[in-house]
């Protein structure tokens, strides 16, 4: 039977297509953060995956070595585990890992049983081990019946062993903000307030999304557009007046020199789950009021953010917010 290998080439290509967005998302999540360390790590990892596929192809097609599915099974499983547990950084919580590994286990089982041949490949050695009567089969049978219960016993022991982990705290990271806050004796209604420095070249309010034309431009030149001048002043607040970078980092990635002292660690603005999911006014509330104004479900004591209204004027807060969005390339969430 003629086997058409060219056909299967399309699929690695699609796999690569799938891998590129993964790399882009992981590399600091959008907004042109293509230079972060995570990006390189993922490029390397993608390369590793393609390399592994190529290696498999070499072994199978060029060298003619056939690896039984029964051997492939634990190998693939271990690969998945390593990828999800070790390579994927920072580590994911156990609940997620368990779910992912469950899906992977089922998927590998399906892979081993996809065609009649591959299923034979997978199940034949097991059948031999269970049924045949020669010495080799017997030995593997005894070994299996020792190892499998042994593994189960070890697992049980681990389960029963008392552990002293911290209890799970479902801290609300972005609690519902108040409708209005009082900053410097002025009432700011969060639902309707607008950033006064979000203004375009024409001096009008700049619609969210339209600021993208300023992304990547140099804000520090003298003849910069009005918007970029605000960005620059926000940057001065971030790196100078307020010194946000001590905690939130030079790249706004939450990895400033002080960050490791805090639990939870400072917010990573480069993460698409933080400021890009929030309205500008929410960020204003967080900056102005800091940790102490968090609601109880968000554990006010579990945030080291100072109430910056005591150190900055309102305009500086709005400007630093402009700067943060500009720097990360995210858009604030809008109300509708």
């Amino acid at each position: 039977m003629k086997i058409n290998h060219r056909f299967s080439i399309i699929f690695p290509i699609i796999a690569v297509i799938l891998a590129i967005p993964m790399a882009v998302w992981a590399g600091g999540g959008g907004g042109g953060q293509f230079y972060s360390a995570g990006y390189y790590a993922l490029v390397i990892e993608t390369g590793l995956v393609i390399g592994a596929i190529f290696l498999g192809w070499l072994i199978k097609e060029k060298m003619g070595i056939h690896i039984p599915k029964l051997i492939q099974f634990p190998f693939l499983w271990a690969m998945c585990y390593v990828a999800l547990r070790v390579i994927l950084q920072p580590p994911i919580p156990f609940s997620l890992l368990a779910m992912y590994m469950g899906v992977c286990t089922i998927a590998i089982l399906l892979y081993c049983s996809l065609t009649v041949d591959s299923w034979k490949d997978f199940s034949h050695p097991i059948a031999v081990m269970l049924r045949e009567d020669h010495a080799k089969a017997k030995l593997s049978r005894y070994a299996t019946f020792l190892i499998v219960p042994g593994l189960i016993a070890a697992q049980t022991y681990n389960q029963m062993l008392p552990s002293f982990g911290e209890p799970i705290e479902l801290r609300t990271v972005h609690p519902a903000p108040p409708a209005s806050i009082n900053v410097h004796k002025k009432l700011v209604t969060l639902q309707t307030a607008e950033n006064p420095f979000r203004i375009g070249d024409d001096g009008e309010y700049l619609k969210v999304g339209d600021e993208s034309k300023y992304f990547g431009q140099n804000a520090w030149v003298d003849d910069a557009p009005k918007f970029l001048q605000q960005v620059k002043e926000g940057g001065i607040v971030f790196f100078g007046t307020a010194g946000c970078f001590f905690c939130h980092g030079d790249n706004l990635d939450g990895k400033g020199p002080f960050s490791f002292a805090f639990n939870p660690i400072p917010a990573n603005f480069a993460d698409p789950g933080t400021i890009s999911q929030l309205q500008e006014t929410f960020v204003f509330w967080r900056v102005a009021k800091g940790g102490p104004d968090l609601s109880r479900e968000a554990f006010p004591w579990a945030s080291a953010m100072p109430p910056w209204e005591k150190h900055l004027v309102t305009n500086e807060i709005w400007k630093v917010i402009i700067f943060e969005y500009w720097h990360t390339g995210f858009f604030p969430r809008t109300w509708e």
Binding site: P93, S95, I168, E169, V173, N263, P264, A267
Partner: peptide
């Protein structure tokens, strides 16, 4: 997740 996992992850959202 547990607080230890939260800390290791560096925030409630995994990057």
């Amino acid at each position: 997740m547990t607080p230890a996992e939260l800390k290791a992850m560096g925030g409630a959202q995994h990057p």
